[in-house]
Amino acid sequence: METLTTKQKIFNSPVTTIILALLVFMAVVIAGQQITSKLLALTPLDKDYRSLLKGLLVSAMCVYSYILFFKKYEKREVTEFASKEFIKNILLGIFVGFTLQALTILVIYLNGSYSVIAVNPVSFILIPLALMFTVAIIEEILVRGILFRIVEEKLGSYISLLISGVTFWILHLINPHSTFLSGLCITAAGFLFGAAYMYKRNLWFPIAIHFAWNFTQSGIFGAITSGNEKTNSLLEAKIQGSEFITGGAFGPEGSIQAVVFCFVGTFILLALCHRENKIVKPYWR
Score class of each variant (00 low, 15 high):
T5S: 14
N202A: 13
F69Q: 02
F221M: 06
Q217I: 05
T79N: 12
Q101M: 15
W213G: 04
E276C: 00
T36M: 08
S59Y: 00
K84G: 09
I94G: 07
I30P: 04
M198W: 00
I138K: 10
A31L: 13
I163L: 12
W204Q: 10
Y197C: 14
G97L: 04
L106S: 15
V96Q: 00
L162N: 01
I125R: 01
G222F: 04
V280I: 15
M26Q: 14
G97V: 07
Y73P: 01
Y49Q: 07
F205M: 09
T43G: 04
N214R: 04
N277Q: 09
N111G: 15
T79L: 12
S115G: 05
F11Y: 15
M198T: 15
S65C: 09
G254R: 08
S164R: 00
I138M: 09
V143L: 14
L23T: 10
K88C: 03
L39I: 14
P282K: 02
S164N: 10
E229H: 10
P44H: 02
F133R: 01
N175W: 02
F11E: 05
G227P: 11
E140I: 03
E153V: 08
V96F: 00
E139D: 07
V151G: 04
I268E: 03
N228D: 12
K154S: 14
I125D: 01
L39F: 09
L142E: 08
R201D: 15
K75M: 07
L234M: 07
N111Q: 09
P176A: 13
I137Q: 02
E2F: 09
T17R: 14
S233Y: 03
T99K: 05
A82Q: 12
I220E: 07
L270V: 15
P128L: 01
T17K: 14
E152C: 11
L91Q: 08
Y283N: 12
L57N: 03
K154E: 08
Q34A: 11
R285G: 06
T6A: 15
T179S: 14
N202I: 11
C262S: 12
P14E: 00
I150A: 07
I141Q: 04
D48R: 06
H274Y: 09
H172V: 06
I105H: 02
V78C: 11
Y283T: 11
Q8P: 08
S13L: 08
S123L: 03
T36S: 15
F193D: 11
Q240E: 13
N89P: 08
F69E: 00
I245C: 10
Q33M: 10
E85K: 13
Q217G: 03
V29W: 05
T6L: 14
A130W: 01
E276G: 02
A21F: 06
T167V: 13
P252C: 07
W204P: 10
S83K: 13
S160K: 02
G190A: 02
F98M: 13
R149T: 13
G93N: 06
F261M: 11
